[in-house]
Design a protein around this nucleic acid. Structure first.
Lengths: 107, 107
DNA sequence: TTTGGATATTGCTATATTGCGATAATAAAG
DNA sequence: CTTTATTATCGCAATATAGCAATATCCAAA
């Protein structure tokens, strides 16, 4: 997205922005919702479900993995993707902290 | 950011993605935090505080306004930006609903 | 060892985003 | 009316992103 001047912001601001950026695509939202509904989730199932090409899904999964929101466990030929609950909960707590803190002094 | 195929996703997924996208920039996070700390906030103060040029701040404010997270009240020569609390609270509730629902069936 | 299925990587095009200088628009003050 | 201060808009350059076809990798089964 063009050059973001990350160096002029603090760690919390940059980390929040990264989390929001990973979640800022409807395909990744849909992937997360779909994964959460499956017992054992396989990438190819996601491709059929979402309606994007396999390389595109693979790229989105990589971005979700980059902040540890999901983890992939290799099972033979396939990969079982799961939401990584500790991180998922931590991210939700971070966002709530941001929303609570930021509104506190609001006019 | 390239062409996102919004038409293959549902309204909830697209709306969540838009919210996350607006919040996915550290400058906008910093602006929100700064606005919330001020009694009366003036755009030029934000420029001094954040360290980006005035047109850049103006553009970020526009994006925050686009989903009604903040509102600007014209006061003579200046504009007083405030967090729009009803929307702010609603957004937080939406995100919590997404996080709670999505983790519910997780392995 | 070869085949076939599943996932990842590469390389590309089209489009979006970030940031800024120049400039316009607006409104109070002189 | 003109000046001055504040904010918005325009237009640009640099970079990031979304999506896909082609291809590579990996592993189990034959």
């Amino acid at each position: 997205m063009g050059i973001t001047k990350t160096q002029i912001f603090n760690a919390e601001q940059n980390e929040l922005a990264v989390i929001f950026k990973v979640l800022s695509n409807p395909a990744r939202i849909a992937i997360l919702q779909y994964i959460s509904q499956q017992d054992a989730c396989i990438c190819n199932d996601i491709v059929d479900e979402i309606g994007l090409a396999q390389p595109t899904i693979s790229q989105h999964l990589k971005e979700l993995k980059s902040i540890d929101l999901i983890r992939g466990e290799i099972e033979g030929k396939t990969v079982c993707y799961c939401i990584h609950l500790p991180k998922w909960t931590a991210v939700q707590a971070s966002l709530n902290s941001f929303f609570d803190t930021t509104k506190s002094n609001c006019c």
